[in-house]
């Protein structure tokens, strides 16, 4: 069972690599080089701040774009090209297919993020000539960014399991945007009353809570991230992506693959 999930995951990874997804690393490398050199010349004392802010923001945006645009095609493209039929006619369970696809794309993003992270640390070393203790915060921010990716991949896959790629992209992107304001949404909900409050609170808790996973500005200012928050965020992101993934499995299990 786990073997088949692994094979599907590695095929998904290979597909992303061969479709030249990792070319974004070149753009990223150019961006980091340019930033490191320029910042060193024009600003004093905030080189580190700019490198961390720019680097982490770029990692996050690149990854989310990849997660959405590959994620939405994970299932629908396989149906369109009829490749899914040959896979599912074999002793492969539908849930194994979904799980394999998820791990494949998540793995792609983790590898991609790993290379980008090297770029950020290289740029940091270039501008400040040594690492500081507070640079550990950058690792935490990177970890949180990967947790964000897990949620987005799960959402894109979820929509892909029953909707067209275009609609899936719109839904996934909209949820990402709403998710970055999840805390404000819960604030809005707290201001309403009665039945509306229940509805609004329910909706506010169901959208992905992306904002808590974004600590870029905090670590750019060298502030530490509480260990408790790391723990809770990990738990939250894993449970939330699992929830979305199980939802995708539930829908996909019942789908007629016309």
């Amino acid at each position: 069972m786990s073997g088949r999930i692994l094979h599907i995951a590695s095929n998904t990874f290979r597909e992303a690599v061969r479709d030249r997804v990792l070319y974004n690393l070149i753009v990223f490398a150019l961006l980091m080089c340019g930033a490191a050199i320029l910042v060193g010349q024009i600003s004093i004392d905030i080189e580190r701040l700019v490198v961390v802010n720019l680097g982490l923001t770029a990692i996050s945006i690149f990854g989310i774009v990849i997660a959405i645009f590959i994620g939405i095609g994970l299932v629908s493209k396989e149906i369109e090209k009829r490749t899914l039929y040959t896979v599912l006619s074999r002793p492969v369970r539908r849930w194994e297919f979904i799980a394999g696809k998820f791990f494949g794309l998540a793995g792609t993003l983790i590898v991609n993020t790993f290379f980008m992270a090297i770029g950020v640390f290289a740029a940091l070393l270039y501008v400040s000539h040594h690492f500081q203790a507070s640079d550990a915060g950058v690792l935490v921010a990177l970890y949180f960014i990967i947790l964000q990716f897990l949620i987005i991949v799960a959402l894109a896959l979820f929509f892909s399991s029953f909707s067209s790629p275009l609609l899936s992209a719109i839904f996934a992107f909209a949820l990402f945007i709403i998710g970055t304001f999840a805390e404000d949404l819960r604030g809005f909900a707290a201001l309403t009353h009665g039945a509306e409050r229940w509805l609004a609170t329910g909706a506010a808790y169901l959208v992905p809570n992306i904002s808590a996973l974004n600590v870029i500005s905090q670590v750019a200012h060298g502030e530490p991230v509480a260990g408790q928050l790391i723990l809770y965020n990990t738990g939250y992101a894993l449970l939330y992506s699992a929830m979305v993934l199980f939802g995708a499995i539930l829908i996909f299990e019942h789908r007629n693959l016309k």
Binding site: I8, N11, R14, R18, R82, T83, Y85, V87, P91
Partner: peptide
Amino acid sequence: IGFLPEQPYFYDHLTPRELLTYYGQLS
């Protein structure tokens, strides 16, 4: 059992060797 769908496309990023290995593993 084996199945060949109508007008299959397959994963065009793979070579026949890789594709067959993949399907073999799934079977």
